[in-house]
């Protein structure tokens, strides 16, 4: 507890009488006792008798030549204050613990709700996928090109929905720390090349020029699935948010203790004021392509969590006319 916070607590507790009746009672009782010991002592002093107060016997002196009024009173006040402060500290610690455990329970309830809702949403989306799939794959008779076109649109919207649901479920798992990392040796360059191959269709559709600059091979030790998902998210964003005939460059470099994967595009870019929102949950930045491309708003959040689970880091560098995203992983 920091001093400022502690001072705030004390002030709040003095004014929030109800919680601290016990502490006030103790403090008051000690003050009263100190007061009466003092009165009694003064009374005896004045009558000429020497009444040895408990304090005096402890210190083994007689105080006939000194006025102990002030001393006893202040000692009493000190004890009272001390007890009061201790009770505040104890009470606050208890309240903090309860608050933290409530927060944890709340987060757990949120995660469970998210997981349940996502699973429930998967069922109707699966139904739509099957029925639209049956029609578009010609299993319910022939359809015109125009009809196929329209069915396709519905089908791909549904696919987008399923991807979003998958993202939410994955995020719930990540937040609940139910993702277990299995590090092993694998070739990072091979992985990058494989991912580019997977996105070939999208790349060709937009006539993008994709360049990979990497050594022949680069073995790292990490969870391959985590690294794959993170790089894939960045690659997918680069492809999504780069315009027709744009450029995407992937640079894989080995440094002394780390490796870096840099994904550079000359797409719509990210404004300086939006860059703080980037890796946060549900943040979707407005740009000319965001409404067409769609997304769950948690891809980067997941990518960052996954990279960090593998002791790496991910960051964005602002450039004019595009974006650079850099993943760093330990060797």
């Amino acid at each position: 507890m920091r001093l400022k916070q502690f001072a705030r607590y004390i002030w709040h507790d003095i004014t929030a009488q109800k919680d601290y009746i016990g502490s006030y009672a103790i403090a008051g009782a000690v003050l009263l006792v100190a007061f009466f010991i003092n009165l009694d002592h003064n009374a005896h002093k004045n009558s000429g008798e020497y009444w040895i107060s408990p304090l005096e016997s402890v210190f083994n002196t007689s105080f006939k030549n000194t006025d102990m009024t002030g001393a006893i009173m202040s000692f009493g006040i000190l004890i009272a204050l001390f007890l009061f402060v201790i009770s505040v500290v104890i009470k606050r610690n208890k309240l903090d613990k309860i608050h933290t455990s409530n927060q944890l329970k709340l987060q757990e309830a949120r995660d469970d709700l998210l997981a349940l809702a996502s699973h429930q949403l998967r069922t109707p989306a699966t139904g739509v996928k099957q029925y639209l799939g049956i029609i578009r794959e010609g299993m319910a008779g022939s359809i015109s090109t125009k009809q196929r076109n329209l069915i396709d649109r519905a089908y791909f919207y549904n696919e987008r929905q399923l991807r979003i649901i998958n993202d939410f479920l994955y995020m719930a798992k990540l937040d609940a720390e139910r993702i277990i990392v299995h590090p092993r040796d694998f070739d990072l360059v091979d992985l990058v090349k494989e991912l580019v191959r997977i996105y070939e269709q999208n790349i060709l559709a937009k006539e993008l020029k994709v360049e990979i600059s990497a050594p022949d091979d680069l073995i790292i030790n990490a969870d391959k699935q985590c690294v794959r998902m993170s790089i894939e998210n960045l690659l997918s964003n680069a492809v999504k948010y780069t315009n027709f005939k744009g450029h995407v460059k992937i640079e894989v470099e080995k440094h002394t203790t780390t490796v870096s994967i840099r994904i550079i595009d000359n797409g719509v870019g990210i404004r300086k004021k939006d860059s703080s929102k980037l890796f946060k949950k549900f943040s979707r930045i407005d740009n000319p392509l965001s409404s067409i491309e769609g997304g769950s708003g948690i891809g980067l959040y997941i990518a960052r969590k996954l990279v960090e689970l593998n002791h790496g880091s991910i960051r964005h560098k602002s450039i004019s006319g595009g974006s650079i995203f850099i993943i760093e992983l330990p060797l």
Partner: peptide, 15 residues
């Protein structure tokens, strides 16, 4: 258990 899904899968496999 989902009746509609069951029917969809039945349709797919029957075809």
């Amino acid at each position: 258990d989902d009746k509609s899904l069951n029917e969809a899968y039945t349709m797919i496999l029957d075809t």
